[in-house]
Amino acid sequence: MFITRDYNGFNLWSDVEDRFRHLQHEMNRISDKFTSHSPKKFPKVNAWAEGEDELVFTAELPGVNSDDVEITVTGNHLTLSGSREGENGKDGESYHRRERWNGEFSRSFNLPFNVDSDKVNAKFSKGVLYITLPKAESEKPKKISLN
């Protein structure tokens, strides 16, 4: 990080920083265009490790009813599917903008370990889905004591 100093009331570094940030932003925007061509990769998911034995998946699904989400776990395979209905234009409504997604989605993941499917916990809060996936007992290392 640069140390910036005002000189004569006009901050040279902040101007350079601004330009640099703008350039960086533009480059991100351009590279996004090339990298986002992986179709059907929706919803976007973040995976979190909670200690050694638990994974937490989070996905942003605003406006989706919890009844419309289906989560299945078999062994080390997680499938997430669901749908969101759009606020479809009815008579007498005219759209200014329509950017929000709607429709069906489905995604599967291979997990790094087998999951104890009885202990999988999923909750929906503020449009964010949290799935807690504990490692199966059989996967945990077992200490063998010598007689």
Partner: peptide
Amino acid sequence: YVDIFEKGNDIIMYADMPG
């Protein structure tokens, strides 16, 4: 992301803000 539409005398806006 937003949806904005006019309905009768109202302007209705939906915005996705997960979290």
